[in-house]
Write a protein that binds this DNA or RNA. Structure first.
Lengths: 263, 263
DNA sequence: GTTGACGTATCATATTATGATACATATAAT
DNA sequence: ATTATATGTATCATAATATGATACGTCAAC
């Protein structure tokens, strides 16, 4: 169990991070026992680590129920992240303009391994909760943003991704057939934008345009989600797409010349 | 230096957190040496802890410059936070409606010690970068949101806060005179809303309405920032305030009955 | 009143982190 | 080119620090 690259690896710190990761949408507050169970750590270790995190202000503790919860520090980390990501500063004002212009929800997504992660969201319409908050990770293959990015990758890399990257059925209409996804991405490569329908939620259509980095690969995408009840694919392409692409294209140049992403 | 409540305090974990906190708006990416300097840890410790954080996916490392940066995991923490904070789910749809209705930037702030922290921001106009991202902490006394909340506190607590809570001069017009702040808060207590002008940025006016918890104290506020170039106090009160208060009042009831905040 | 679940505190042991030192690599200066 | 300086990386003996079994308190349900 200590087979990590030993000497410059601090186990206690890693265990502490396990505690932090135990919190997610299904586990919003946890008792000591639940924490121990979810992390696989024993009771004493959990007690010490949780207490440390509490003392250091990373976990709030309800004085009566004694349950732990993420603290405001978790939001401050997002704040620090925003400053560190050069994309955000470039994109934010343009995204605001776009969302005001369209009157529809606009998102900024980055590639993160085989998932995409939403780094900025500007909701204009009432939607389900998860669609309004940042930091959500979704399988890249099932999102318009992910497909738009993938479409800019070299042929072999793209094929490998389509074959191996994960897909989770979120709705009955989530595309599980990888051949169909390949077609969708091929279209995106041809057209310069991607469309997805009902992948994450029924009757939702997503359109996305890639943001291209210094190496010609997309590392992010501007995305727009609309309801299939009020929009058709044709009207999306005629009314939304041009502005969406203008925005993505306006952001890209800053990253064509220099380097872009981390590790 | 080990005078913390010893036995159930894991020093290595606390040190790791020090590294995370070393990143902020002025320090977006750090070399090993800079990390050591900013945390006060020695080179070896920094090396091991940073490596651990990197291996565990909390820090990205630029393969060429070898500098560390916050990873996407920092955004996922915000995601987990959002689910854990019962206020967000209640407030978000109503805030979206409000921002669409007003066409002006709407914020949700929570009290966090002697500061406020922005937990949600819906920018409608182009503003300075820091105003568009969540997780920012500001001295409560210098913000309309903080004053609106403070106005709901018991008299003695309020006075103590006005005397002792920190104030940072952000602009030449930031109010440093605590007597004037006391007046502003007294007005807020009388009127049920607070106004601030030019505290964080010149020619910016903030209006805020408190969200009241189960104990009658505000723990959050809905806030709106507009430009003094296009708005007057009178028009704010007549055009913005009613809708702002409706929104805050619509959110409060869910927290009047039950308990609200953590520790 | 009894039981069980859960949070809290204690302590001897050796596993684990420590930090001084030496090595490697890159960048700047001479 | 050659040297110097800074910065990242690797090693290792030492003891300090985390470990986890156990025992104690406390609260709620039965």
């Amino acid at each position: 169990m200590k087979t990590k690259q030993d000497t410059l690896y601090v186990g206690s710190l890693a265990k502490g991070l396990r505690l932090l990761r135990a919190f997610d949408e299904g586990h919003t507050d946890l008792s000591l026992g639940e924490l121990a169970q979810r992390t696989g750590l024993d009771k004493s270790a959990t007690q010490r680590l949780a207490n440390t995190l509490h003392v250091e202000g990373m976990l709030d503790k309800d004085p009566v129920t004694r349950r732990f919860r993420p603290s405001h520090a978790w939001l401050q980390m997002a704040y620090a992240y925003y400053w560190s990501d050069p994309l955000i500063g470039q994109a934010m004002p343009k995204l605001i303009n776009l969302s005001q212009d369209l009157g529809e929800t606009v998102n900024l997504a980055e590639i993160s391994g085989d998932h995409i992660i939403y780094v900025s969201r500007l909701p204009c319409k009432r939607t389900y909760f998860a669609a309004t908050i940042i930091g959500r990770r979704l399988p890249a293959l099932s999102t318009s943003g992910g497909r738009a990015m993938l479409a800019t990758f070299p042929e072999d890399e793209r094929r490998h991704a389509i074959e191996t990257w994960p897909i989770t059925p979120f709705t009955p209409s989530t595309t599980l057939d990888r051949a169909k996804i390949a077609t969708s991405i091929a279209e995106a490569a041809r057209d310069g934008f991607a469309v997805s329908t009902g992948q994450m939620i029924l009757n939702e259509i997503g359109v996305a345009s890639p943001i291209i980095g210094h190496d010609g690969r997309a590392f992010a995408a501007v995305q727009c989600s609309v309801s299939a009840h009020t929009w058709t694919r044709e009207r999306i392409v005629s009314d939304i797409l041009p502005k969406l692409q203008d925005t993505a294209n306006a952001i890209s140049p800053a990253f064509r010349a220099h380097r872009a992403g981390g590790a």
